[in-house]
């Protein structure tokens, strides 16, 4: 059965905050109705929530590395083993990489939380819930409760918004502002080695095989310390006499620096409202620390 989420008037699902509210409402239904199926979030980067009997088994998003990506990027599974498994995580490959069931489940839970953060930190355009049997391959004993997922996404969004120099995990592409060798911390140095002005935090996370949230917080810390910087927004060029019209101006919208608003601290403090804030309680006190990077 398809339950396309529509507005009360029957119009298509609205964009932005309203769509985020639809996601919130849909996830609230999951445990209450013990739903199985998929919850597809269209947006930037968007993602798919795999549901089974009221729990979220996995969140797959282009914005956050999967378990396979982490294992491949960190070298725990070789390209040959990946190919031998026909592009999947074959049990033999996992055994050779010393990835037991417990480790795999822990990684899957971490990736699920990271995927939910990626969806929540991005733009949400549409939400569609399709009830039915979830795809095979998810262990029903290791799902994540939607409330836990929402709470963790909320905590991470809040931590990111409250960092000294908030950064968009997807749109901002930092530049090196100092020598990489000056950084004594190995994990941070590895991040710095991937910073080139073209890569976002998300791109660096995929390259290193680390979580999106952990990587984003590392870059936010490097920004605060002045080790990296964000490029200045491009200025508008005055029109040239006789210049050909820009055929792409209308067809290809370009992201303007700061369009998301996430990088303007004065705006962030006033208006940054994570999609899940309405539902989850936020601790009043205590430091908020990024999670440990996966080994």
């Amino acid at each position: 059965m398809v339950n396309a989420l529509t507005s009360p008037s029957g119009l298509p699902v609205p964009v932005g905050a309203s769509a985020a509210l639809h996601l919130l409402q849909a996830l609230a239904r999951v445990p209450a109705e013990r739903l199985s199926g998929t919850l597809t979030v269209t947006g930037y980067p968007g993602g798919v929530f795999h549901l089974r009997e009221g729990s979220v088994m996995a969140v797959e998003s282009p914005g956050a590395p999967s378990v396979a990506t982490i294992l491949l990027a960190t070298g725990r599974i070789t390209e040959g083993q990946w190919a031998a498994g026909s592009g999947a995580l074959a049990p033999e490959s996992l055994a050779r990489a010393s990835v037991g069931p417990a480790t795999l489940h822990a990684m899957q839970a971490m990736v699920t939380l990271d995927g939910a953060f990626a969806v929540a930190a991005g733009r949400i355009d549409e939400v569609e819930l399709i009830e039915g049997e979830p795809a095979a391959g998810w262990d029903p004993a290791h799902g994540v409760e939607p409330g836990v997922l929402l709470g963790e996404a909320e905590r991470r969004l809040r931590a990111l918004a409250l960092s000294r120099v908030p950064i968009c995990p997807f749109g901002d592409r930092p530049l090196l502002a100092g020598p990489v060798a000056a950084c004594a911390n190995r994990a941070r140095r590895e991040v710095l080695e991937k910073v080139n002005g073209r890569r976002s935090c998300r791109d660096i996370a995929f390259l290193l095989g680390r979580g999106l949230y952990v990587t984003t917080m590392e870059v936010a810390g490097l920004l605060a310390e002045g080790m990296v910087s964000l490029p200045e927004p491009p200025g508008e060029d005055p029109p040239r006499d006789g210049a050909a019209p820009d055929v792409h101006a209308a067809a290809l919208p370009r992201r303007s620096r700061g369009a998301s608003g996430i990088n303007r601290p004065e705006v962030v403090r006033a208006t940054f409202r994570p999609p899940f804030q309405a539902r989850m309680r936020i601790p009043e006190k205590g430091p908020i620390e990024p999670d440990e990077a996966p080994e």
Binding site: P62, L252, P253, R254
Partner: peptide, 13 residues
């Protein structure tokens, strides 16, 4: 390059 850069910025990955 502007067209290609726009595509890179529009599509994650």
């Amino acid at each position: 390059i502007a067209v290609m850069r726009a595509l890179r910025e529009q599509v994650v990955g």
